[in-house]
Amino acid sequence: MTNPPELRELERESYGESYSDGVIDIFVGISTAWLGAMWLTWPGYLPGAAALVAVSISPMMARRKRFVEARTGYVKFTEQRRRRERAVYTTAGFLFAGLMLVARPLGSLQSDDLDWAVGPDSLIAWLLALVAVAIGIIVVAKRTFAYAAVLIATGAIAAMVEAQLGWPLLVSGVVIFLTGLVMTRRFLDRHPRTETS
């Protein structure tokens, strides 16, 4: 089904609004900060930490759905939209997992070894920023562009001071988590819980 322009905008706005609760932002913020902290303290356990994040996604999304629907009601978007959403989550998940797998071995190399202008850590931060931008475009969440900007900035700073990827991840995670908290607070103010339908 192809919507006329004004209804396309209505659909985009409806869909974007369905992600205004901030719960996913809180989860992504905690996860990113957690991975950053693990990187800095126990880097050997990083794959396990990333796996823990991965298995937490499904129960988190189920609880989020109950939390949101109790306040905004139930909606099922079109198959086209749901297909695109699944593709985004799957692609982002694989990209993130792949980056986490190569991050440690790649990050242990120095930029001189590879004759690169910047260290691999910063490159990975910027690749994560690209993932955030792609997600933002597809799920209509402009705030992910701000998250991407934070990742880019912290990656750049890490490159300048020759710090590890752990710091950009930790800082970005905290920023995303705090943003999620503010969003959830506003969401709760706008949508008090309702029992009727």
Partner: peptide, 23 residues
């Protein structure tokens, strides 16, 4: 109608939130 047109289905609460209409 416009709000239902752009989704597959929605419940009463969702429509009330989106349209601003009373139950």
């Amino acid at each position: 109608m416009a709000n239902l047109y752009v989704v597959d289905e929605a419940d009463f609460v969702y429509l009330a939130q989106r349209t601003g209409l009373t139950h």
